[in-house]
Design a protein around this nucleic acid. Structure first.
Length: 98
DNA sequence: TCGTTGACGCTAA
DNA sequence: TTTAGCGCCAACG
């Protein structure tokens, strides 16, 4: 049954890879597109990604637009700015949401 | 097996 | 707009 677990993670990474460069998505937003997955599971999947992952994990933020407070937060902020996403303090304006 | 933890979401104040 | 409280559920010791 481990295959089922692996499956939704693969779908998660696929959705992430297909995300437009100038758009962000919330943990819950991704979870809604994956059957039987909630925001907390998406968050856990993100935290388990390798540091040098090629996936755009930095475009996954909280539903209220704030960046999550974690070890990679500083890098996440820098990557978002590099993608042309103008942050307002520690928040991403709603217009950037998918 | 069980209690705790956590890169969350939603609602009310 | 911000904060607090509660619900959710897999991972971990």
């Amino acid at each position: 049954m481990d295959d089922v677990v692996v499956d939704w993670k693969v779908q998660l990474y696929t959705l992430l890879a297909a995300l437009p460069r100038d758009r962000v998505v919330s943990y819950g937003g991704l979870a809604k597109q994956l059957d039987g997955v909630n925001a907390r599971m998406v968050a856990r999947a993100m935290s388990s990604l390798p540091a040098g992952s090629a996936l755009p994990w930095h475009r996954v933020i909280r539903s209220d637009g704030h960046l999550a407070d974690h070890d990679g937060a500083v890098e996440q902020r820098a990557r978002l700015l590099a993608d042309g996403i103008m942050l307002q303090g520690n928040r991403v304006p709603r217009r950037y949401f998918l």
